[in-house]
Nucleic acid binder design. Structure first.
Lengths: 277, 277
DNA sequence: CGCATTCCTTGACAAAGATCAAACTGAATG
DNA sequence: CATTCAGTTTGATCTTTGTCAAGGAATGCG
């Protein structure tokens, strides 16, 4: 594995604080591998033998049942996935495929578990990572259950804007169909909903989103750090879509777990009207 | 705290394997508290100061946004909740309220984190618990995204049957409205859907469910261990509804964590019983 | 016991979302 | 530069699900 990649991995929240010797041991058992685009890396139901770390490219996590399929997350450098399955030594609940050519670091799950007992700092990192992944998934479920499709779209776009440092214009990082699937709707519905958002605060041209009337959008879907936020200390773990890039910076890539959201406020927890569900 | 309760707690997957001395220390900082029914224990957005262990009664985890509200889980003895928030020292993503009078053990999050570094076995338990909670939440999201309401209901009932040891008749453990909310639909829709399932494999009388035609149900919603199953080694963490009881055993209560279906027994005779409160 | 809640059910209706088919777009390719 | 192909958009239509309103059943309490 290349030095540079090693140091990137070493800087992951997951590996950052462990003892150098243990990191070295872990990495000796690991290996880095290149994959072409659109290749299935793992299938749901398989056993978890390796923790996966995306070093380059991007990987989609998805799930299917009875012919239906849904995107659960996209992981970009440097993010990890299927940590939970490795820890528990159980079958994956999701499948993974590359969206584009990618390089992935594979860390044997057995080494992972062994090192966990050896190195308290590593254990702390692992548990923090997992807790973050849990919270991300909880947010995902809340989003699906508490908002309708229109609101989820607005929430997503505002979140993307937030991740672009609050910019009013940014570029979607993934295909719309994939965003639609992630947000739990059909591509057609997503398209139509975007259409109706034109003139209500959003302008779209290709993959470029422009926020015209932020206030109106926030009225239509008040952001909530208990749904939209990333947690303050970003975790990888691949439970969200990647952040956007600003228009005209095509090759600049950040971690999907990346930037923390600012400027979002709590809602008053006391106002509870009859629920939607 | 009562001896008996302590030993129950000691037998939780989370505390079972830790060193006796550490368990004792943890429990010394902890305290047990009684709450009346329908009382809000924690509100989403609050800071996580204590890990909660339900010793008696039952607790609902729910979330709301803009007046809408949805049930995320119900925790019964002996199950834990909000572990992830404690680990990360971040605000809860969910609120919790008692459904009935309950007794809850409160373990200071700081003690939890300290003990984590001290005791590798405890660390292993924590991470296992969290990994399980993550997977449960992932299942929940998959269920919502890949199945329609009718299928989710069938899946739920088949799962409940499974938890009753495959019995064809069992009693719902929680109000239907709550099940409906958990499954991501309105109570009205739930009621109607159940109605149409009469004569298609299900018979309902009050809270008692009878499975008439299991094969038909499994055709309508093929069970999938990557959605419905509990993981082999059951975790608590409160990310599912509790298991049913067989008709005519009203007072027999099992752990919500015991989603793992059958045969989870407590009572491990080699026991330490730490002190006070 | 009867009243008051709370939960559950039902009906009529409206809205949201899915499906199917077809056309359009834009980038990659020969 | 035409072709191709995946992705996107659009329209028409249908299904699913939510909403509102009201009645019924069960339960707890005075």
């Amino acid at each position: 594995m290349r030095e540079e990649d090693l140091s990137e991995v070493r800087n992951l929240p997951l590996f950052r604080n462990m003892r150098a010797a243990n990191f070295q041991t872990l990495m000796q058992g690991a290996y880095s591998q290149r994959f072409p685009g659109r290749l299935e890396l793992i299938q749901q139901g398989q056993r978890a033998d390796f923790l996966h770390v995306v070093v380059e490219g991007s990987v989609e996590l998805y799930a299917d049942w009875q012919g239906a399929s849904t995107t659960m997350a996209v992981v970009r450098p440097v993010g990890t996935f299927i940590l939970a399955a490795c820890i528990r030594d159980l079958p994956y609940l999701m499948s993974a495929r590359t969206l584009e050519p990618a390089r992935v670091l594979l860390v044997p799950a057995s080494d992972l578990r062994a090192t966990f007992r050896e190195d308290p700092e590593f254990a702390v990192s692992i548990v923090g990572e997992l807790a973050g992944a849990f919270r991300s998934m909880a947010r995902h479920a809340k989003n699906l259950k508490l908002r309708n499709s229109r609101e989820r779209i607005i929430g997503y776009l505002l979140e993307q804007s937030e991740m672009s440092g609050g910019a009013d214009q940014f570029v979607l990082q993934v295909e719309k169909r994939l965003v639609a699937s992630y947000l739990g709707m059909t591509a057609e519905n997503f398209s139509r909903a975007l259409r109706t958002l034109e003139g209500e605060g959003i302008h779209m041209k290709g993959q470029t989103v422009t926020i015209i009337d932020r206030a109106a959008l926030m009225r239509a879907c008040p952001p909530d750090i208990l749904i939209d936020g990333p947690d303050p200390e970003p975790m990888s773990g691949g439970v969200s879509l990647p952040g956007p890039e600003l228009p005209g910076s095509r090759q600049e890539r950040r971690s999907a777990a990346g930037q923390g959201g600012v400027g979002q406020q709590f809602r008053d927890p006391n106002e509870t009207r009859p629920g939607r569900t």
